[in-house]
Design a protein around this nucleic acid. Structure first.
Lengths: 201, 201
DNA sequence: GCGTTATGCAAGTAAGTACTTGCACTTAGC
DNA sequence: GCTAAGTGCAAGTACTTACTTGCATAACGC
């Protein structure tokens, strides 16, 4: 009548690790790094605390592995491939991908913001994809400036564009009641404002 | 030869409290709420840990008092008074006040972002001023839309405008090397882009 | 079947941390 | 000068938490 028989969880080699990573992530998002205990993580993963340490060695190593695991950068190529030359549509695709991406790692981004003055290397991984995308966007802006379709400093434009998405994602976190979930309309609004401004012509 | 004679600090009633508040703030910014210990705060304030508790009762009360102390809202009236009717200049004044304001409480904003899923009421105070300003901005946008100078949804415009500043301030925190400290030019750039967009005409 | 490996379990260790307390001393107000 | 309030200091309490350990048991490869 041991407990592990009752819950009948998957005991295959990688499954425990994955459950621990998932639990770690959700608890990190909810309570932050220091607010999350290894006991909680183990409980939520349906795993004994000792197993956590046997698998990852330390809490820090677990957190690092968690961030690494949830911050892959593979979607960038797809983004590049989907650009087809129409300025507005391209920007909408970029913004859409950015929103999706940032929403996914929003909790980790906030955590890295809060801890960047501290010791951890968490920030590095969480910002890797956005930083890479920023370069892509800057290059894209430069091309369109050269083509005479945009004006301004490509780096500034890229920063502004990224910031637009960033503030939207963060705003939805802080004031969820004000931000109805309507991503396509948001993307259109943002890109429209970015291209044409708010001034009535 | 007691230590307090050597450092010859001000021992007036409010001075200890102020030193504790200042130390609390700088440590909160550096290491977050949970990462900061009462011993550290007391040390940095040049005060004994027991005094901290005699003054504030608990660590939570100290943090609350700290946030409250550094998040006053008085500058809003000055902002309103400085608006003079010229659309671009008004927006620049608003943006400038916003940047200054958000830079001042940037650390507390980040802290509140990281802790909003937790228990604390810290977020409330840190976001009070920005939220109030957002209302002002939205009203301002509505007026200018009614006057035929702007187009769009006033709330969306306000959100976008605030987000512009927010992402700039946060970006400077995360990537300080990329953001040269040139606030006036930044304000001009942002307001220009907000009004006219990036598209070459 | 059998050894290896991963896990559960329970207990424990060591360190950190919020908070307290009793006493001596200094300072400020009267 | 005297009292009272504020502080320094040192020790201590109660609790949390990362991490360990020894043993029993279940699953997997051969």
């Amino acid at each position: 009548m041991a407990l592990q028989q009752l819950q009948a969880v998957n005991r295959s080699p990688g499954a425990t690790r994955l459950r621990l990573l998932a639990a770690t992530r959700s608890l990190l998002a909810a309570k932050g790094r220091r607010g999350t205990t290894t006991r909680e993580i183990a409980d939520q993963a349906g795993v004994n605390e000792a197993t956590l340490f046997r698998q990852f060695g330390s809490k820090d190593a677990l957190v690092d592995a968690c961030v690494e695991h949830y911050c892959s950068t593979v979607e960038l190529q797809e983004l590049l491939a989907s650009l087809d030359g129409d300025l507005e549509r391209d920007l909408q695709r970029i913004a859409s991908a950015l929103i999706q991406r940032m929403e996914n790692v929003r909790d980790l981004i906030v955590m890295s913001l809060a801890e960047e003055n501290a010791d951890g290397t968490v920030g590095e991984a969480a910002w890797r994809a956005p930083t890479a995308i920023k370069k892509i966007v800057a290059d894209y802006m430069a091309k369109r400036i050269a083509a005479g379709e945009l004006s301004g400093n490509p780096l500034f434009l890229a920063r502004f564009f990224m910031g637009m998405v960033f503030s939207y994602v963060m705003g939805r976190k802080r004031f969820p009641e004000e931000y109805a979930a309507d991503p396509p309309a948001v993307v259109e609004f943002q890109v429209g404002l970015f291209l044409n401004g708010a001034r009535k012509v």
